[in-house]
């Protein structure tokens, strides 16, 4: 019994310590935000890696998420409410929930894991030590461009996911229900509010930052060679995904 309590206590202390370390790393990174322009080539490269290279996956996921949302919503409305409201119901779900959450989950898999693997490999091959020995702060050189790009590019990807999601939803509505575009997009327009889009973008901003921060933190704390890098990759994905869903709930409670 005492051993169990002691084990739980040490795990709790470790959790608090790691949470503190994540915030310290975030603080140090934010301190470097003033040097973004000086490090613009690194930042633009990461924006390309995180943003542009994720586009095909985000578009694919966005179209099908929109299509599924449309099918499911039509099924729910059938016999109760006119299909004229299908565009409104689908678009609100996409703006508030599906766009940001699915984009962030895709990003957690693609970006968070890749950041952890890249930085983790650098850690176990002494490349992080090499940066330090060259008087280059790894937080500025590696974490700053990735975390900033995470904060900026996930909202951008979310906007694109929102747009293609609505197109996917309309495609299904047109093919299955013969819904004319003016009816579908008219209801999207009638129920469109800036608040809905902004809440989605706020979520995307938090999710993007979280994914990149976790990827960097896990990467910097990698040990144990190739096996350690593999474990870090999994850890980054699991932690990012869990935190995305937790933050989704917390932000929803705060905003709505």
């Amino acid at each position: 019994m005492i051993e169990q309590i002691s084990g739980f206590g040490s795990r709790a202390i470790r959790f608090i310590q790691q949470t503190g370390e994540v915030f310290i790393m975030l603080g140090k990174t934010v301190n470097y935000f003033g040097q973004l322009w000086k490090n613009r080539s690194l930042v633009f490269y990461q924006m390309y890696e995180i943003g542009v290279k994720s586009l095909p996956l985000v578009i694919f996921v966005g179209i099908f998420a929109g299509a599924v949302a449309s099918v499911q919503t039509a099924y729910q409305l059938q016999g109760f409410i006119s299909f004229n409201y299908l565009g409104a119901a689908t678009s609100v779900a996409i703006f508030i929930e599906l766009g940001p959450v699915l984009t962030a989950l895709v990003a957690a898999g693609r970006i968070g894991a890749s950041i952890a693997a890249e930085i983790g490999t650098m850690k176990v091959t002494e490349q992080i030590d090499a940066l330090e020995s060259l008087a280059i702060d790894p937080i500025r050189y590696l974490a700053l461009p990735r975390i900033f790009s995470g904060f900026v590019m996930i909202p951008v990807l979310t906007i694109i996911a929102d747009l293609v999601g609505i197109l996917g939803a309309y495609f299904v509505a047109y093919m299955n229900l013969d819904l004319p575009p003016e009816i579908f997009f008219g209801s999207v327009k009638d129920f469109f509010t800036i608040m809905n889009v902004m809440s989605g973008l706020i979520k995307a901003f938090v999710f993007g930052g979280t994914t990149a921060i976790i990827g960097c933190y896990v990467g910097f704390n990698t040990s144990g060679g190739a096996e350690g890098v593999g474990q870090s990759t999994i850890r980054a994905f699991v932690l990012s995904s869990a935190l995305i869903l937790l933050n989704d709930y917390l932000i929803s409670v705060i905003l709505f």
């Binding site: 650098m122 091959t125 002494e126 490349q127 030590d129 090499a130 020995s133």
Partner: peptide, 9 residues
């Protein structure tokens, strides 16, 4: 500092 594995980027 010359690292054991060279630690090239």
């Amino acid at each position: 500092f010359l690292f054991q594995g060279a630690a090239l980027f």
